[in-house]
Simulated assay, not measured.
Amino acid sequence: MSLSVRIRKRLAAFTLDVSFDVERADRVMALLGPSGCGKSVTLKCIAGVMRPDEGRIVLNGRTLFDSEAGVDLPPQSRRVGYLFQDSALFPTMDVLHNVMAGVREGGRAGRRERARRELRAMRLDGAERLRPAQLSGGQRQRVAMARILASDPELILLDEPFSALDGYLRWQLELDLADGLRAFPGGAVLVTHDRDEVHRLAQDVCVIDRGQGEPLMSVHELFARPRTVAAALISGCKNVSRARVAGDHLLACDDWGVTLACADAPGPRVTHAGIRAHYLTAAAAPAGERGAPPSLAPGANRIPCVVERVIDGTFSTIVMARTPGGAPLRYECEKDAWAALGGATHVTLGIAPDCVMPLCEGISEGECAHA
């Protein structure tokens, strides 16, 4: 599967500007960003439900949309399956006929058998005669997925398919859809604002921030080496400070009042530094004491802090610590690790240079940091 998307569309709050290329059939690509950033609009433009103002969309060598050439294929001609948030089943049809409606070819008997096969794959045996209103939310989404697969699409679009579900149903549907995607010979694009879904289901990701699509990156890169403030925040980074380049591998972090060594040499457009809360380590330090506590790893950056608040979570402890610059740092650790510090009021937080992330605000590729 190859998919090339270059589109712009003027919306009320911003102009959507997204570009990416996916070249492998076994990849799930995610569009990740906060609500209202343009993710679903991008998906609808690919499906043909909405029309971009300008640009080009090409799937497996077929031009689906080209503003300059005047090409705009209707949705039914694009061979794109679209899984909506609400499943979009026909309420007056039973499950079997909902899936049969997606089968493109074959006589009635052949279409019926194909529909039954897809229902079995979605573990919906015995539900063929039920109406959508008789199904749970997870079952309705599985029926919708069976209908999509029965249509033999070249591409599957998933528009936050788990957003209406809670708890176990959400987890079970995710497992079912993951199995279906693994067996699917084409590619898939997943829209979500949930970084955990991206981590579990996708291999590539495009972060969208206020309509601006950032360069495509691997999911591993998103979590290990995000390049922008938006990518760091949406991937779960809790600590971000304004920063200035202070040397080949040094960042002066204004909000925290410290200069930190980083493994990546920051580029000239770096404006911020990021630290993930669970990468920090802590050692108790008496009030006013200077120097490096020996329990921190050699070579780690050291940040003297005052403990302002300790939050006892379900499975971990969250510590809010005031830095020399006044801005807080969030430190997350196992409960036993914090208990071992004996209620310290002053701590020295340590962070390895490998875990200090130089970040920029723009989306230009390769300008934020150089490995």
Rank of each mutant, 00 (worst) to 15 (best):
M1E: 09
L3N: 09
L3G: 01
F14G: 09
L16V: 05
V18Y: 12
D21P: 02
R27Y: 05
P34E: 09
C37I: 06
C37L: 00
K39Q: 01
S40F: 04
T42F: 07
G48E: 08
M50T: 11
R56V: 14
L59H: 11
T63W: 10
T63Q: 06
L64I: 09
F65H: 08
D66P: 02
E68I: 11
P75H: 14
P75V: 14
S77D: 15
R78A: 14
V80Y: 03
L83E: 04
L83I: 12
L83V: 15
D86I: 06
T92W: 13
D94W: 11
N98W: 12
V99G: 12
V103G: 06
R104H: 05
G106S: 07
G110Y: 09
R111C: 04
E113I: 12
E118K: 10
R120S: 13
L124G: 06
L124K: 10
R129M: 08
R131A: 13
A133C: 11
L135H: 04
G137V: 04
G137F: 01
G138T: 08
R140D: 08
R142G: 12
R142M: 12
A144R: 10
I148F: 05
L149M: 15
D152G: 07
D152I: 03
P153G: 10
L155G: 08
L157A: 06
L157H: 00
D159N: 12
D159Q: 12
A164Q: 11
Y168S: 13
L169Q: 13
Q172P: 08
L173H: 06
L177E: 04
D179K: 15
R182V: 03
V189C: 01
V189N: 00
D194M: 06
R195Y: 09
D196Q: 14
Q203V: 05
D204P: 04
C206A: 14
V207I: 08
I208A: 00
D209V: 05
R210C: 03
Q212F: 06
M217F: 04
R227N: 10
A231M: 04
A231W: 02
L233D: 11
I234S: 01
G236M: 06
K238R: 15
D248L: 12
L250T: 12
L251V: 11
A252F: 10
G257A: 08
V258D: 01
H272D: 10
I275R: 02
R276G: 00
H278N: 11
L280C: 01
A282V: 00
A283G: 05
A285H: 00
A287T: 08
A292T: 12
A292M: 02
P293A: 03
P294N: 00
L296V: 00
G299S: 08
G299H: 01
R302T: 02
R302W: 05
P304S: 04
C305I: 04
V307P: 00
R309Q: 15
V310I: 15
I318G: 11
M320H: 12
R322N: 00
G326I: 06
G326M: 10
A327S: 15
A327P: 03
A327K: 02
A327I: 06
R330L: 10
E334N: 14
A340P: 00
L341T: 01
G342V: 07
V347M: 05
L349H: 06
P353M: 04
C355L: 11
V356L: 07
M357G: 03
C360N: 10
E367H: 11
H370R: 15
